[in-house]
Design a protein around this nucleic acid. Structure first.
Lengths: 232, 232
DNA sequence: CGACGATTTGAATAGGATCAATGGGAGTGG
DNA sequence: CCACTCCCATTGATCCTATTCAAATCGTCG
């Protein structure tokens, strides 16, 4: 690993408070590697040999069964994925693939577990990250069990609108096909959901979306702090 | 708290390896209390003041938004709930209520967090519990995003059949209304799903279910280790 | 330019929800 | 102990949502 890369990693919230010594030991045998788009990084059911961290780019977590496939989450820098599998020393429940050219840091699972034994600050940060990951999945599950497809889309648009400056337009950061899978619907259904939102000021031009009646959209979406707010 | 209760708690996997000193300090200000059925223990959005542990009985975790309600999980002894909220010092994402007369241990959130600073074994156990909770929610989400209602029911029956001795019959441990909500459907739809499974050897008499063609049922259900196995 | 995949639209179908009505038990109070 | 009540559960009818299959269009990339 190059020195500049190490510095990038060192600044991650997960590692910023741990001791230099533990940090360096932990990185023995770690990789920071760049992958092109569409590379499968880990497969469902494989043993959790490495903790992965998205340093740059974008990674999709997805799951399959019985020929079906669904997107579980999209991970953007800087965040870990499959932390729980590493800590439980259990097989991955989700597969992961790059959806852009991405830089991934891979830390041997055992290194992380050993480092946690020796560094309380690291452990504290790991617990924090894990607790927030848990809460994130719970929110996703609530989103799916309590809302219809159109409502999920409307809330996605409302949140994204705020994250992107709340200036009446959105740029979709992912393909519609992937967005559909994130929202738990087919691409066809997503198209129709967008059409349904037209009376609420939603106009689609490729990845550019115009949000002209945000208040109306919010009335339909009824955003909920405990589902849509990534913090809290 | 009575001495016998303390001994019960002491044996929980979460606490069994921690030091006596930390354990006793942690229990300062803790309650072990019995509640009747249908008592709301915590509400969605409330601050996480206590870690709750189901020592006896049964607790439903549920979520609401916009007038709708859905069961997120059912917690049986001996297990914690809302551990993540306590660790993240964040509001509860799910509400909890007893569905039987239940004995609940409540430990002040700050006590737990302090104890973790002083006791590495406790921390290790908490990380383990949290990682497994995370994996459990991920499995639930996969179940919902990748399967139809009938398939979810079929898989529930297959798992329950195994857990209850695989002898051709099941006793439903929860009301059908609650089961329907767990499985993400209406009670009416659950009734119809049971009817759909009749050709697969599923016969319903109240809470007693006869499973006469388990192999056929498994062919329909297509159980998946990474969704249906609580371990792994 | 041409091929391929993404997106959209239409039509038909399936899956699930809602509304309404009825049957069944469990628990309560007389 | 029995009648009553309440709520759970089932069934029918209908409506709405979402998926599937098909086909046309659009864009992008080699």
């Amino acid at each position: 690993m190059r020195k500049s890369d190490i510095q990038t990693v060192r600044k991650l919230a997960l590692f910023s408070d741990m001791s230099d010594e533990c940090f360096e030991t932990m990185l023995q045998g770690a990789f920071l590697q760049r992958f092109p788009s569409a590379v499968v990084l880990i497969g469902e059911g494989e043993p959790a040999d490495f903790l992965h961290i998205v340093v740059d780019g974008c990674v999709e977590l997805y799951a399959t069964t019985n020929g079906r496939e669904s997107t579980m989450a999209v991970v953007r820098p800087v965040a870990t994925f499959i932390l729980a599998a590493v800590l439980a020393d259990a097989p991955y429940l989700m597969a992961a693939r790059t959806i852009e050219s991405s830089q991934i840091l891979m830390i041997p699972a055992e290194n992380l577990r050993d480092a946690m034994k020796n560094d309380a600050e690291l452990t504290r940060a790991v617990v924090n990250e894990l607790a927030n990951s848990y809460r994130s999945v719970v929110k996703t599950l609530k989103n799916h069990k309590l809302r219809s497809g159109v409502e999920r889309l409307a809330n996605y648009l409302v949140s994204t609108h705020e994250n992107q400056g709340a200036n009446g337009r959105i740029y979709l950061p992912v393909e519609k096909k992937l967005l559909a899978s994130m929202l738990g619907m087919t691409p066809e259904n997503l198209s129709r959901a967008f059409a349904t939102l037209k009376p609420y000021g939603v106009r689609v031009k490729g990845a550019d979306i115009e949000i002209s009646l945000i208040d109306d959209l919010r009335v339909l979406a009824k955003p909920n702090e405990l589902i849509d707010n990534p913090r809290s």
